[in-house]
């Protein structure tokens, strides 16, 4: 309800104030909203600044620090991360918003069903399930049962996952974790029936506090974990596929340049590029013959072509 009011207010303002300003001569002005100033956001900013042509003006704002940021009309608001994306829609929808480095589930929860006159779009941080599953099978082609833990808080579209795994001839063994103290029992259950455990973005399950027991238990069962980041692989996951802030920044730069020409945002998209991390020590210990990264990418391309 509150959102609606804010939205109508915004709409009114737009109509009254912004109409005369639509014609303009100078270069594009992009307001960049960063969720915070930690490393991933800094890395994003550094790469983006480097990749944008000089004609595009970049104004960096931290939405946490500037709660009441100026509601002037920006040509384009790029919101980095969920906090920034939330701030972007709550303060102003007078400008087109490109939310980047947001998980698809988060973006959907924020923007789905909202109409935005100036356009909203996104570059997600997470990988499409098809890619994630192609990756898994490129790393471990013989997998039959893919284990998955989920909690009541898990927000994922699982149908594409089930389909992708089925396309590779496997099946998903899912086990719910009702509460943190039941994690051990759920883990034992899922591991005893799986060839690999696929991590999902749910901090109720995968956190700095729980990762030790998850990894030790899965190692004991000789079931490798496929993680979501380099951090997972450093901790002891077998492999991970993920997109780095730098890679999102490059894609963002390309979209900004395109926006400058077309004045329109494309539909929300998954990241074009991705990185792969492999833990050769863990692979060796579990007697898994890891293909090289090149081979993995080759297999993924082949799977992608066959799938379509």
């Amino acid at each position: 309800m509150r959102l609606f009011l804010r939205y109508s207010e915004a709409l009114l303002l737009c109509l009254l104030v912004l109409l005369p300003l639509t014609s303009r001569a100078e270069g594009l002005t992009v307001t960049l909203l960063l969720s915070d100033s930690s490393t991933p956001y800094q890395a994003f900013l550094d790469t983006l600044s480097l990749r944008l042509p000089a004609s595009i003006k970049l104004i960096v704002q931290n939405p946490v620090r500037n709660e009441n940021r100026a509601t002037g009309a920006d040509d384009l608001v790029v919101a980095v991360g969920m906090k920034a994306a939330e701030a972007a829609i709550s303060t102003s929808l007078r400008s087109p918003v490109l939310a980047v480095m947001v998980p698809k589930a988060g973006y959907d929860s924020l923007f789905l069903g909202q109409s935005a006159p100036y356009g909203i779009s996104a570059i997600y941080l997470d990988q499409p399930w098809e890619r994630q599953v192609d990756f898994l099978y490129a790393v471990m082609p013989d997998v039959e049962r893919v284990g998955l833990l989920y909690s009541p808080e898990t927000r994922l579209e699982v149908a594409p996952l089930l389909n992708s795994v089925a396309n590779h001839g496997g099946s998903v063994v899912a086990q719910s974790v009702q509460s943190t103290d039941r994690l051990f029992a759920s883990l034992e259950k899922v591991l005893s029936g799986s060839d690999v455990l696929l991590a999902i973005p749910d901090s109720r399950i995968y956190s700095a506090a729980s990762i030790r027991n998850i990894l030790l238990t899965s190692y004991r069962h000789e079931v490798p974990l496929i993680g979501l980041s380099q951090g997972y692989v450093n901790a002891g996951a077998l492999a991970a596929i993920f997109t780095l802030p730098e890679q999102i920044a490059e894609q963002t730069a390309r979209q900004i340049v395109a926006f400058d020409k077309k004045r329109a945002l494309p539909t929300p998209s998954y990241p074009e590029n991705f990185s792969v991390a492999l833990n050769t020590q863990v692979a060796r210990s579990l007697e898994i013959r890891l293909p090289s990264e090149d081979e993995i990418r080759k297999r993924m391309r082949k799977a992608g072509e066959e799938g379509r």
Partner: peptide, 22 residues
């Protein structure tokens, strides 16, 4: 799907201790 915390990008940037060490 309104559970913001669980849909945050922080899930991808978590720092973890090294568990399966050499």
């Amino acid at each position: 799907t309104w559970a913001r915390e669980e849909s945050s990008e922080q899930n991808y940037f978590q720092e973890f201790p090294v568990v399966l060490s050499a």
